[in-house]
């Protein structure tokens, strides 16, 4: 408001109507910028249009399936990572849980456990990793960046050891395979479902409220009686389980479990999705839907550049630029908000 007044004051030649028009445009622009989900979705649409004009194969069914599978995996992990980030921590180990869980499932099945139970067993092991990450951070007070860097290497070594470093093929029936992400449609449905459920948890459930409170004001939340330790450990567990689930779904989609899959690549893509989608690394603020769109945008960028013949090196430069630009916008927006600019 104050700025509007200042604007019209400095340009007395503006007719009132023009000022009003500009005010409207500014308000629409602001509200779009303020709805992080909307702004990232628009970026996605622009990119689709761009790539479709430069590479007509972009919107072919085959390519869409390819893109969806990749984006879905990232989106699932990003949902968990957003929860951890909002509670004021970070989980670097999630990319290794992605590789570990399907191996646990595979070996359990080899030992005679039915597939559904074997999958659950894989996710249980993932949740144990989450508990360890959480306890290292909350009880032993190791900063989560370091704690999960440690478990990142631990799990990687463990997975390589039990697998001997060789990929394996899960031999499940068609029902199990299709249900658990065996094709792009199935995997996309999982990703959409998880994004919706976690957005609901974040915005409508007590757990989400306490997660935001924990990351937003750790001391204050604990003074009020919020069990901040439980919240943090719980979100580490959720994140690990989603990492394990993403790996399991990919195992069925790709038809192979690779001990070298996932790792830092997928973890950083998940964090990048979260950040591009509007989640703050400082905690206390974030959106699952934003991260979902963030994952799609990253998928579009990666896939589009591959189709247009842009090399992986160039892609990394563009990804880096995108993260920095988004963060710049985020920081600017937070300052704008703090100044009361958006109401």
């Amino acid at each position: 408001m104050a700025k509007d007044v200042a604007d019209s004051f400095s340009r007395p030649q503006d007719s009132p109507r023009r000022v009003e028009h500009r005010g409207l445009a500014r308000r629409v622009g602001l509200s779009l910028l303020h709805s992080r989900e909307a702004s990232i979705a628009i970026a996605g649409i622009v990119l689709v249009v761009y790539f479709q004009t430069t590479a007509p194969a972009f919107l072919s069914p085959g390519n869409i399936a390819n893109l969806a599978g990749y984006a879905a995996t990232t989106a699932i992990i990003a949902a968990g990572e957003v929860m951890v980030l909002i509670s004021g921590e970070v989980d670097l180990s999630v990319g290794q849980v992605y590789a570990l869980s399907p191996f646990v499932m595979y070996y359990a099945h080899e030992a005679g456990v039915p597939f559904v139970l074997a999958i659950l067993l894989g996710l249980m092991v993932a949740s144990i990793v989450g508990i360890i990450n959480g306890l290292l951070t909350v009880v032993l007070r190791i900063p989560s960046f370091i704690a999960t860097l440690g478990t990142f290497y631990l799990i990687n070594g463990f997975t390589l050891t039990i697998s001997g470093g060789f990929p394996v093929q899960p031999k499940a029936g068609p029902t199990i395979t299709t249900t658990f992400g065996g094709n792009a449609v199935s995997q996309s449905l999982w990703a959409i479902g998880i994004a919706l459920v976690f957005q609901f948890v974040l915005r409508k459930m007590r757990w989400g409220l306490h997660t935001i409170a924990t990351g937003g004001n750790l001391l204050g939340a604990s003074e009020v009686g919020v069990k901040v330790g439980v919240i943090k450990v719980g979100n580490f567990i959720l994140c690990s389980i989603l990492g394990g689930l993403a790996g399991t779904l990919d195992a069925f989609r790709i038809g192979s479990i690779d001990p070298l899959a996932g790792g830092s690549e997928i973890m950083f893509m998940a964090i990048a999705s979260a950040v591009i989608g509007g989640t703050l690394l400082t905690g206390g603020s974030g959106t699952i839907i934003g991260a979902f769109f963030g994952a799609i945008v990253l998928g579009i960028l990666k896939d589009g550049f591959t189709l247009s013949g842009v090399s992986a090196y160039t892609f990394d430069m563009i990804l880096g630029g995108a993260i920095l630009i988004t963060m710049l916008i985020n920081v600017r927006l937070s300052l704008l908000r703090a100044a009361g600019g958006g109401q």
Binding site: L209, H210, I212, A213, G215, G216, N217, L219, G220, A221, E223, V224, V226, G284, S285
Partner: peptide, 16 residues
């Protein structure tokens, strides 16, 4: 320090 959480609205803070 008020134990208020900046990212939350008024009623969420009141009922935290």
């Amino acid at each position: 320090d008020l134990a208020l959480v900046n990212g939350l609205n008024v009623y969420h803070n009141m009922f935290l």
